[in-house]
Write a protein that binds this DNA or RNA. Structure first.
Lengths: 190, 190
DNA sequence: TCAAAACATGAATAAATATTCATATTTTTA
DNA sequence: TAAAAATATGAATATTTATTCATGTTTTGA
């Protein structure tokens, strides 16, 4: 039954992300993942051949779900709007589930990552680079090395979402999304 | 003999950082650290009681060497100069040795970190917050939530240094330091 | 110069953790 | 509804990796 399998996979992935948020990839144990997912450790091996396969599957899924997924639906819009939409979705999603960043960042350089998954990472950065280059041509964006701009954008959003998640009190309101984007946009606009 | 001990500790720490850059904290093995440091694995246990102790000692050392170390020598200067000096030192050091960031970030949430080391992390962020608050009072800096500003600064410098290190060709010239700081300063100045 | 102390080695052992598998339970199908 | 198939269990086993220790080497100090 597909729904059940999907439910289980979800259970396992959620448990893995939660644990990664607490103990990092270094601290991930199959037995703990099973406990967190409320299943027996043997059950994990019905769904994944090994720990390595489990983590690679999760990495793949997260990459596919992140910002690149909406690229096609917004590529006809003006650049600052595209950036705003991406910012909004990315920040909301990252705050909802900050474990994603931790998992993605740590797994990217872990010894378990597969070659296929390594390449996924590069695609989104290319999209962003093209978007910024276009913005420069249209005189909307500072004529500065794209990598510097990308570092500012990605570094800011990652660090800010991590902060928001770590502070139990703070909730991500639309106001905060808008203010943080304004700060980002002011930094890069011409 | 103190010099020799220091030399060995350095050897071990350097090896650990290099390996962390390659395989993350998740991939660190004592045997590999020993191999990378060109010593026998048993030798590690002459200098450290355990892996846990080794990693905590390294974390402590890195924290103490990073930006906070220069705080006292510059605190009398104007705010934008203080920030520029910190930016310069931090970016140079991070690029020289990007493994530091990876190690610091990953170890901070690993299960091996001690409580003492966890607290170290908080100190620098407090210093930066105070500096920014002062800047706001002096009307130099945008009157925006400090955490948002800090996220932009720290996120940008971390991500940019990581980028510089990963691109074999690119070298961190003074010009790049100045340009990146300019971008950062424009983003936060009033 | 030589014995004692300190330091270093890496194979052997212990500890931690991934994985298997005999058994039990649930779901599917005819 | 009952047998077959699929799914689940967790103690037992295999594997990986940290740590020890008997032995060898270098350094120190009288």
């Amino acid at each position: 039954m597909i729904e059940k399998t999907e439910y289980r996979l979800n259970q396992i992935f959620t448990a893995t992300l939660n644990l990664t948020g607490k103990v990092g990839i270094a601290g991930l144990k199959m037995s703990d993942i099973a406990k967190e997912a409320k299943i027996a450790s043997g059950t994990l091996y019905i769904y994944f051949k090994s720990k390595e396969e489990l983590l690679n599957a999760l990495y793949y899924k997260l990459q596919r779900e992140s910002a690149p997924a909406i690229v096609d639906t917004i590529s006809h819009l003006p650049i600052n709007i595209q950036l705003y939409k991406m910012w909004h979705i990315a920040l909301k999603r990252l705050v909802e589930d900050n474990m994603r960043i931790i998992f993605l960042e740590q797994f990217l350089i872990s010894p378990l990552i597969s070659d296929t998954n390594k390449n996924l990472d590069i695609k989104f950065k290319n999209y962003l680079k093209e978007l910024l280059d276009k913005g420069k041509k249209e005189n909307l964006i500072k004529d500065i090395d794209s990598q510097m701009l990308i570092s500012l954008i990605i570094g800011f959003i990652r660090t800010y979402s991590t902060y928001l998640v770590n502070e139990k009190e703070s909730i991500l309101t639309d106001d905060l999304v808008d203010k943080s984007f304004a700060l980002c946009w002011q930094a890069i606009e011409k």
